[in-house]
Design a protein around this nucleic acid. Sequence first.
DNA 1: GCGGTGCTTCGGGCCCGTGCGAAGGACAGG
DNA 2: CCTGTCCTTCGCACGGGCCCGAAGCACCGC
Lengths: 234, 234
Amino acid sequence: MTSPAAFAATAALMAEPPRAAMLQALLSGEALTAGELARVAGIGAPAASAHLARLVEGGLVAVHPQGRHRYHRLASEEVAAAIETLGGLAADVAPVARRWPHGDAFRAARLCYDHLAGRLGVALHAGLTGRGWIAPAPGGWAATPAGEAGLAALGVDLPAARRARRFACDCMDWSERRAHLAGGLGREIAACCLRRHWVARLPGREEGDSLARRRLALTPEGARRLGEALGVAA
Amino acid sequence: MTSPAAFAATAALMAEPPRAAMLQALLSGEALTAGELARVAGIGAPAASAHLARLVEGGLVAVHPQGRHRYHRLASEEVAAAIETLGGLAADVAPVARRWPHGDAFRAARLCYDHLAGRLGVALHAGLTGRGWIAPAPGGWAATPAGEAGLAALGVDLPAARRARRFACDCMDWSERRAHLAGGLGREIAACCLRRHWVARLPGREEGDSLARRRLALTPEGARRLGEALGVAA
DNA sequence: GCGGTGCTTCGGGCCCGTGCGAAGGACAGG
DNA sequence: CCTGTCCTTCGCACGGGCCCGAAGCACCGC
C-alpha cells in the first residue's frame, strides 16, 4: 500500500476520459501507436502525446519506438488487473444507461491484457487448481509435476512461461467475481489456445469500440480439448 | 465494463489526495464521522463535506446519519477490492521513498473492509477450496455440505453469511497476488475469528496513520484451531 | 536529397475543481 | 429555551490541467 498522495497520483492517471479510453484499448494486449490511441481517445495528436507521456512517466504504459512509430502497451499485468477491477466497479456504480453494450458475449470469453478472462478464464483457473496442476506458492502459484506433464501435452510453452517476471498469479475477473490466471503461465496458455485455434478472436464492431478486439469465442475443437484435459465446459 | 467516461469518473473520485486518504481510512471497515475523515485527510470541514458528498453521489461511500454525527462507510466490498487493487498498483509504480512503512507486518494479516486479507486471508482461501468446503458457483462460490458442517463447527454464522448480497466471491490480495475470500462468508469468518480471539487487532502507531487500524495478528489459539480445521500455518 | 508522415514541443486560452472563511440548519444536553 | 458541537451551504479566489494551432524533429520511401 502507498501514501494517499501516490495512490491519488496513480488514480489520476486513469481519471480523464481520454486516458481511460486509451487504457481500455490497451487492455486488448495489443501494442498501439500514438496516432491510433489519439483516435481511440477522440483527441488531437498533441493532447494524446501529452497524455501518453504522463502514462509512461507514471509507469502504467511502456513504449517501444520502432522507426517513426511509437508503440504503446500496458506496462504490466498489474496495471491490467487494476484497470479491469476499476472497470468492474464503475459498471456497478454507473447508471445503467452508461454501460457498454457488450454484456454477455463479453462475459463468456475475452482477453485481459495477455491472458484469458471471462467464464472461460475462470473455468480454466478452476480446472488447473481442481486437478492439482498448480499449487500455492509464495507470490502466486507453481506448477506441480502432474501440471507440467499435462500442460506440456496441451502444447503450452512452459519454459517461456518461466521466463516471465511472475510464473502464475491471480487476476480478478470483474464479470465473474472470481480469480482467473495471469502471469507467464496465463500468457502462454492464451497463446497456445490462439495458436491452435481453440479460441478465436471475434470480429469486432468497428471504430471507436476500444473493447471489441478483446472478445473471444471457444471453438468446438477448443471445447473438446479443454473439456477433456481440464473439465472446461462450453 | 463501462464507457471511458464512467470509468474516468469513478477513477476521478480516487484521484485527489484528500479523497484517497479518506478511502484508505475507510478500508479498515469502520464507519467514521465526517470530522474524523476531515482530520485524516488534513483538510477543513467544508472541503471534507464536499468530498464526501461526491463520494456518496458516486456510489463509493454510504452514509448513516446518527444524531448530529454522520457516519461514513465504504458502499460495498467491490469498492474495497478496487481500492486495494489500485493501492497495490501504486505501490508497484511509486518510487520506493513514497511507500508506506507498513511492509511485512501488514502483509501477514490485515482486514480488507470486512474480511481477512494478507497471507492469512490467502491461506484461508486455499484451505477452503483445497478441502472442498466451497465449490465454484455462478458469480462466486457456494458452500458444499462438508463446508457447511465444517464452518458451522468452527462457529461461523452461515445464515448471516447467506443474507449478504453475495455469499462468497474472490477479492484480489495485492500483497500476495492471489485471491482471498470476500462476500458474506468472508465477513462472517472474519467476525468469527475476531469474536473467538483467533486473530487480534494490533495496536497501531497512532495518528494520521490511516492504515494502522487494519493490522491483525494470528493468536496461538487461532493458529491451532485454523491449522487443525483448514491447514492454515502460522 | 526531398516530400510525406508520425510524433513531439511550444504558446496561449479556457474551464473545472479545490480550498478557505463566514454564515446557516440540525441535533444533544443543561 | 439557549449554548455548544457537528455538519452543511454559500461566495470567492487561486491554481492546475486540458485542448488546440503552429512550428520543430525524426524517420521512411522514392
